Amino acid sequence: MYGAGIEVTDEDFEFAKSPLSKKFIRLVFEKYQLEYIAYFGENRFYVSRQNSQALNPLYPDSSYPEDIELVFDFMARERIRRIKYEKGVLFRSSVPGLSDSNEQ
């Protein structure tokens, strides 16, 4: 569920609002030297740096930088559980399918 084996493409941002794009997310990962971001639901995220250390907001009860918060919003909206950056390439988890409430 939290694996990230699908390469991110420009089509993943078909309905995203500017500035969100593949390039934007890549630049965020490079700027903060991130390895991955995991989304656990209900506004809970884990941000890992390339040195395997967690990236946390600077102060208690504060938020992450705005560009990272935009990535969080994108992940929650698109139901992406994990995005990772490896050797210059972004990967994402598969998007879980919606259950049909009419199915028996």
Rank of each mutant, 00 (worst) to 15 (best):
F40S: 07
D67Y: 02
I68S: 06
S48G: 03
Y32Q: 13
E35Y: 13
N51D: 08
F15A: 13
A54Q: 06
R77M: 06
F74S: 01
E86S: 05
V71R: 06
G5V: 03
N43L: 07
D61K: 04
E30H: 00
F29A: 00
S48A: 05
E66Y: 15
S99A: 12
G5H: 12
D67I: 02
E30W: 03
E69D: 07
E14P: 00
P65M: 02
P60E: 09
E86N: 14
R77I: 07
F29G: 00
S94K: 11
R92L: 08
E69F: 10
V8W: 05
Y39A: 10
S21A: 05
P57V: 00
L34F: 06
R77E: 12
G5F: 11
F91R: 02
L90W: 15
K17R: 12
T9N: 08
R82S: 05
Y39M: 11
L20M: 07
S52Q: 06
S62K: 06
E86A: 09
L70A: 04
E66C: 14
I37W: 07
E78L: 04
A38K: 06
R92P: 00
K31M: 01
N51A: 02
P60F: 11
G88Q: 13
E7K: 15
V89M: 12
G3Y: 12
Y39Q: 10
G3N: 03
F91Q: 09
D10N: 03
R26V: 07
D12N: 08
Q50H: 02
P19S: 15
S101W: 12
E103T: 08
I83F: 15
F15T: 15
S48W: 10
Y46L: 07
P19Y: 15
G97L: 10
F15K: 15
L70G: 02
A76M: 07
P65D: 12
D73P: 00
R44Y: 06
I80V: 14
K17I: 12
R92E: 11
R49Q: 06
K17V: 05
S99D: 13
E42R: 15
F13Y: 15
Y85D: 08
Y59E: 02
Q104V: 09
Q104D: 08
R81L: 15
